[in-house]
Write a protein that binds this DNA or RNA. Structure first.
Lengths: 219, 219
DNA sequence: ACCTGAACACCGTTCAAGT
DNA sequence: ACCTGAACACCGTTCAAGT
């Protein structure tokens, strides 16, 4: 009759739809890793169809990671002074990492070569140039800030992935140690537990920009 | 006759033998991940026997990671001045990470709670205390240095795991980008490729100790 | 007390077959 | 041209059975 049978029709896939599904999956609370198979069922397609559009899962993960870098970059006020641009980029990256932990955990271990990454690198190099650094110092400060931001993103992603409710603490559990062998830990352990991860990482960013300011001043 | 049949006898396992096998496996060129099953065959035992001694693979990986932290720590000259102790600890950690990439890749994503980790934390806190920092600054500098070292270790491990021959470059491939959109990358790309990863990370360590010196001086 | 081995519930990926 | 589905070669982990 007029009722069309609910026949399983072929699904049309494309990279954008796959990326969108990947982001949605990664944002689901409790999801700490993306699997090609789960992505397939989310898309209503055979899991292996994804290999029509991405060479490998790593390739897909790179695309997803570049997406969150591009998203972070897009939220930076390009008219702000150099240190503020760096601050915003780092801060936005941490926020995006917390939103998509299953993607951000890869950030230390993957390199995207995509527009998001290139744009972020360009921003950082340019900011340190504007700060007035020498060529060598530009490169070194960039590298330090980049590795700091990426490891921060991965760390925050880990924390959010394994304890979706918990929130914010830099350490998963307080450090308990024999005060005789580890007097400093005994003394500062509580203080370490109080550290909020984002605050801590942003303090690191400040230390790096501060170092750049100093290096520029002594030229 | 006198020739005993090569009967498969039960194997005696213990945590130390498992750890030793894990280290050996991780040190094999081209091995980028440890698998319980491969560990089992290395030990001549059923893979699942490992679960008699470690609650889970994560538990085992934590023990292995703590082992490399303890090894790095043991190579630090405890009599050296504070900044030299920090330098040595960071440098040894990078060396051990390069030796056992399949273990070190976990460093950003795992926390061991073992003596290696505790000892390293104690050393860092104590060094920054000796530097003359305030309580807050001790904690912040420690956290920055720790995350820098661990992400450095993971990064180096990644590089060594995926390109066992290559060596040393911070970036896996030169950054190629349209000079119109990415003028800074076009200008500094070559210089970035020249960076040796260990040098770069050690420069980061210097920047952190330098920041500590400055903070102490202005008290 | 501790190792074995079958079994479970997963993975990423290839490739011939369909349409 | 692109999706399907069987198949391959793996995973980590549980648990009853052996000794």
């Amino acid at each position: 009759m007029a009722v069309k049978a609910a026949v399983r029709t072929k699904v049309r896939l494309d990279p954008d739809r796959i990326i969108a599904a990947g982001l949605e999956l990664a944002a689901r609370p409790g999801v700490s890793a993306i699997s090609v198979r789960e992505l397939g069922t989310m898309l209503g397609a055979d899991p292996t169809a994804i290999y029509r559009h991405f060479r490998s899962k790593d390739d897909l993960m790179r695309a997803l990671l570049d997406h969150i870098l591009a998203g972070s970059l897009a939220e930076v006020d390009a008219g702000a002074p150099w240190d503020e641009r760096l601050r915003q980029l780092a801060e936005r990256t941490l926020v995006w990492a917390a939103r998509y932990p299953a993607i951000a955990v890869e950030s230390v271990v993957l390199t995207t070569h995509g527009p998001g990454e290139l744009g972020a690198v360009e921003l950082m190099l340019d900011a340190f140039r504007e700060a007035g650094l020498s060529d060598d110092e530009i490169v070194r400060h960039y590298a330090l800030l980049a590795s700091h931001s990426l490891s921060g993103a991965a760390g925050i992603a880990r924390a959010r992935a394994e304890a979706p409710g918990e929130e914010d603490a830099w350490l998963d559990e307080p450090l308990i140690a024999d005060p005789r062998r580890y007097p400093m830990i005994a003394r500062y352990g509580a203080r370490l537990s109080e550290l909020r991860d984002v605050d801590l990482l942003m303090r690191g960013v400040e230390m790096i920009t501060e170092s750049a300011r100093r290096a520029a001043a002594s030229r």
